[in-house]
Write a protein that binds this DNA or RNA. Structure first.
Lengths: 186, 186, 186, 186
DNA sequence: TTTT
DNA sequence: TTTT
């Protein structure tokens, strides 16, 4: 708690792929999704219609990650509220690189599933929170070993401040199988 | 928790008056403030410069209310994030009336003091939370009795859902998640 | 334009009814919709599940109003970005009353249709704008005459500042629209 | 314009440095600033107070860039509303790299100066706008040559969709001193 | 009055 | 690199 300043991102868009779920040693879930937003306009010069799609990396933590894993799919439309976070990592050549993501975590973010047709999911809303519980996964057993292998060079160290777990447990979130598609948009 | 939909208000403006603080029987603080935002534009027809000020009623609950009461003053500039809420009350003639306010409460809102000169307050940020603590008063002992008198017909009865009492203990969040994606494009 | 302060509202919810469209003398469209957002939580005392729905009055102006009238229906899910505005009016007894609405107008707001099933509309996005165009109606020919009749006591006087017409000029927006809803609940 | 989805960032923080202003061949201004937001919390494990600062790259275009260049300084507190945008560039080794920025441009963004002490600026608000106008410089004559040199490998080429130039030129930015003496409407 |  |  206690923040000096405001750091807020609001996105409404569709997933470019199924979520990728991982579990931290503690059992907390992490979901990575990419969301597309786009704008179209008429080019002042050529007069032709143009469109530009922006892809956003979103990382969800805790309960909201579990919900994402269970209900979101490629194409799902979501409302995301989170924070901008840039993390440093080393590429294969040992070079420092930076990646900026929208982090949805604890009480600083929310995810709302929209529509109800486009991804299997349906009208589920979920606020962040590490409420967790069922330690049904762990760091040593990633679900996408292949993908995992090639990038053990992106540290991550997610040490952001945490909000209260809010008591509110109950909710059952069975872990989703995974599924990669990647003709990833970036 | 669990919300279907999004209900969010963001204001940056200055207080029209000192905050009015009250305490609920439970000891929880409630602060009422009014915030001005304004826009100026040139009138298309007359060509003259015009300005319009909008006044917003804001009700803060819990810890954030205490902070407001202690640090905010008439003229203070603040950032407010809260929810729209319309409550019904009866006027002197027994007629039903409605008042819409921006409610800052629990983890659904925040208040950030801006600037640092205009009101005594200084760079204090505070997230909502009914965390309460110091039962230093109660509903019957308002700090602004005068103001009180004239509107005892506005019940208030804030029965909105309460967020987790903040306590916020245990939870382990400091884990290094991991290698997100691979030779990620950004 | 020039604004001191920030006045922003973001809503995601469903329409409680079909939009009510009206036209100002200038031909500019005005759409009124009501949007529901809700929260559910477990009562700390009784332990039972509770839910609370908040209803929001939203007034859209110009092109975005036309889009709303054409594509939105009762039940449609929308993303709304607008400004809080409180207007004064006189009730039947000549008493001053106030109504707070979310105004979507010009470049200060947007409306995005979500989902794609619940209202006929599909994936249409629209930013406010003075664009006008198809003068397909006028003040004297409201589409919801019934609703009209019963509430000629809510003046409205929509005199908010207008953003630069951005090319698309013509449109006259300073007209007092009119009688919105009836014995409106707020 | 027409956008499918929502892409919005809201920041309130302080500048880490004076703005860097450049001019495009067209004469349009571009200002780059970095904004700090921070959060502090008590570490669950060690019990000690911790703080984390997040730095945000912000690129402002057009009139709002000119205002930033004129009034913002290192330390200035600002409210920023813009869009997330990731652009690709080549580093010295010809490697593709990506940088994510918050873009404030046209009617999709705003900048509000806050406080009034920390940077010389005072209560200035400015909405984006490619309004151009005063061709007072060009891409080849940056105001911060030093800073320029070290990163000429970051192309920039801002080819995002441009909003309607809106005509709205000149704009007067002198502040109407505000004064809150309650003729408050409620 | 919506939605789940 | 800011701010408190």
């Amino acid at each position: 708690m206690a923040s000096r300043g405001v750091n807020k991102v609001i996105l409404v868009g569709n997933l470019g792929n199924d979520p990728e779920i991982r579990y931290m040693p503690s059992g907390g879930a992490v979901a990575n999704i990419t969301i597309a937003t786009s704008e179209s306009w008429r080019d002042k010069n050529t007069g032709e219609q143009r469109e530009k799609t922006e892809w956003h990396r979103v990382a969800l933590f805790g309960k909201v990650a579990e919900v994402a894993g269970e209900y979101l799919r490629k194409g799902s439309q979501v409302y995301i509220e989170g924070q901008l976070q840039t993390r440093k990592w080393q590429d294969q050549n040992g070079q420092e690189r930076y990646t900026t993501e929208v982090v949805v975590q604890g009480f600083n973010g929310t995810m709302q599933m929209l529509g109800g047709r486009q991804g299997g999911g349906q009208g589920m809303g979920a606020q962040g929170g590490m409420g967790g519980g069922q330690q049904q996964g762990n760091w040593g057993q990633p679900q996408q070993p292949a993908a995992q292998q090639q990038n053990n060079f992106a540290p991550q160290q997610q040490s952001a401040p945490q909000q209260a777990p809010a008591q509110q447990p109950q909710q059952q979130y069975n872990e989703p199988p995974m599924d990669f598609d990647d003709d990833i948009p970036f």
